[in-house]
Amino acid sequence: MTTVTNAATPSRSEAAGQDKTHPFVRFLRVWGTILVIAAVAIGFSIASPYFLTVSNLNNIIFSMFTCALLSIGLTYVVAAGSFDLSIGTTVTTASIVCALCIPVVGAPMAIVIALLVSMLIGFINGALVTWFRISGIVGTIGVMFLLEGVNQYLTGGYQIAVGYDETFFRWLGQGRYGMIAVKSILLFVFFAIAYVIANRLRTGHYINAVGDNPLAAYYSGIPVYRWVIVSFVLSAFFCGIAGIFLAATSSSAQPTGGAGYLLEAFAAVFLGATILGKGKPHVLGTLLGVFFLYMVSNGMTQFGIDSSARKLFNGVVLLVAVGANAFLNKEELHLKFI
């Protein structure tokens, strides 16, 4: 097709229609959250010579591992326009399944089984919110309760130990190269995989499209349900990895090991959505969001700041970052209260 002659004189507002905001506001929108993270990091480094050392950075990354994987997985689900509240318990289930299977089938096979079980959970979540028409919040709360029951039943309420002779398995969670933990290195590997899925494979693009306008996606011939289910399976897959490493790190599986990470993950995803001014969840933002939460926790611990103050700080940062971003991105009307 050849170019159509441009018959219309472009109207002015059309030409300027892209972004009518002040450059400074635009700058804040993109870099605001990162500036805050950097400022806090610089503050800690000045106050404590120990803060900005390889060993301490490794500590931060090591401690954020589980939360980071959960949050990255959750990012896909939120991008697809749903919620997954079962992620915490999925982590627990994966670690229990893995720990139970190791004595029977060996560590490598146990890892595979744990991942398959997690993905099955994700598939069930996805099926519930699509074919079975249950809202993401309600459906995954249901699954969360189910899994709590399963976890209780499988463990009988006690921890399940992993044998000391499982050297490979324990290396995953506890191995080190000098000052750097194997787990810390692997976090970046998993992040790279997640990043490629989100940005460089069709999967991520379709998930974004479905989340942005599911009706248009359906009209465009995109199998909407499939991509929603895929987002839940991805979420559960990363939970599975997190669960396996949780068991590997502590050489045991706890009946309620992963439950505490759920709300942190949500905080990280929505904090991450403000990073680089994307206004929607993205895996790089999520990773930085998790890093920020754990960095603050690490820094404050070094200064002996009480954990109540830490929680207070996290709450304020989340509200200010998300609130400021919503304010800078002001739409005409705000009428969504989910």
Binding site: N208, A209, D212
Partner: peptide
Amino acid sequence: RKQALFPNLSMAE
């Protein structure tokens, strides 16, 4: 707007 477009994705996407 409802059936064909993805408002928050770019023109190219």
